[in-house]
């Protein structure tokens, strides 16, 4: 894979960021309000822990690790995947044809449309929670451990990005605004921010093998905490797990290609 498409992507991203920074007041307002709204959600989690004293044997700092990884990963995906989020508008306005008329991959062009800087609000909030939890959780932060968390975040970002791509791909089959599908992606965060043992077995299986949320969150954190995985997976798997996110993204992009093919044979 050549580097040149990346260069084009960064060019687009630079333009997008520049236009957002043109109105610094607006950017700060959006970022701060985003930080606050994400923060309020976390306050909700803390309130529940406070009321119930714990969650099936998990303490608040441990939960913070899960919460932090999920939200930092999601914020990254949100910031970079905004193009797919607004893709249905592109279809509706008929401007997707223009993308097809350019000698470039449509996925690249859609992805590059916009880079949302304000998502730094969620990023900062998630990072804060992650660091706080990491400091309280009583684990020695060796290089391998820290690397695993980083990998988990990156793998998770790929996973969420894949969800955005899938959600956008649905727009090829229906012109209706499937905004409600947003709850699937946000549902991913609400699910992932709690340790997976909370859920019923069939749910856990879905989130390990179909949408590998567990792989980027639960398994790496377990490895870091030194806990034996109740599913009995070997340690190596816990390390390689974040790659599942990348695989998911690649699969999602294949679905995208199917969507484009459908669009080109049925017309707009």
């Amino acid at each position: 894979m050549s580097v040149e498409p990346l260069r084009l992507y960064f060019r687009y991203a630079g333009l997008s960021l520049r236009s957002q920074l043109e109105y610094p007041a607006s950017f700060w307002m959006l970022a701060v309000s985003h930080f606050i709204t994400c923060g309020i959600e976390f306050v909700g989690v803390v309130a529940l822990f406070d009321r119930f004293g714990g969650l099936r044997g998990w303490t608040l700092p441990q939960a913070c690790l899960f919460y932090g990884i999920v939200h930092v990963a999601f914020a990254l995906a949100e910031a970079v995947g905004r193009g797919f989020d607004v893709f249905p508008n592109l279809l509706r306005s008929g401007d997707f044809d223009r993308l097809l008329l350019r000698p470039r991959s449509t996925a690249l062009q859609v992805a590059a449309q916009e880079c949302q800087l304000m998502r730094v609000g969620r990023f900062a909030q998630g990072l804060g929670v992650l660091l706080w939890g990491a400091s309280r959780v009583g684990v020695e932060w060796s290089l391998p451990n820290a690397a695993l968390i980083l990998l988990a975040v990156l793998g998770g970002a790929c996973l969420f990005y894949g969800l955005f791509v899938l959600q956008a791909t649905l727009a090829f089959w229906t012109i209706e605004s499937l905004e409600v599908m947003n709850t699937m992606t946000y549902g991913g965060t609400e699910t992932g921010q709690y340790p997976l043992t909370v859920y019923r077995p069939w749910f856990r299986r879905f989130f390990t093998f179909v949408v590998p949320l567990a792989c980027m969150n639960y398994l790496p954190v377990n490895a870091v905490l030194g806990r034996l995985d109740p599913f009995g997976m070997p340690v190596l798997v816990q390390w390689a797990a974040p790659l599942a996110g990348v695989v998911f993204l690649v699969a999602a992009l294949q679905c995208w290609k199917l969507g484009v093919r459908h669009y080109r044979s049925t017309g707009s």
Binding site: R7, L8, R11, L15, S19, R102, P103
Partner: peptide, 21 residues
């Protein structure tokens, strides 16, 4: 319908197209 970017100066649209093509 225009193929140029709505918020960008014309010259920047041209440069972007140069890279795309």
């Amino acid at each position: 319908r225009t193929q140029l970017w709505w918020d960008l100066p014309v010259i920047e649209s041209f440069q972007l197209l140069r890279d795309i093509y």
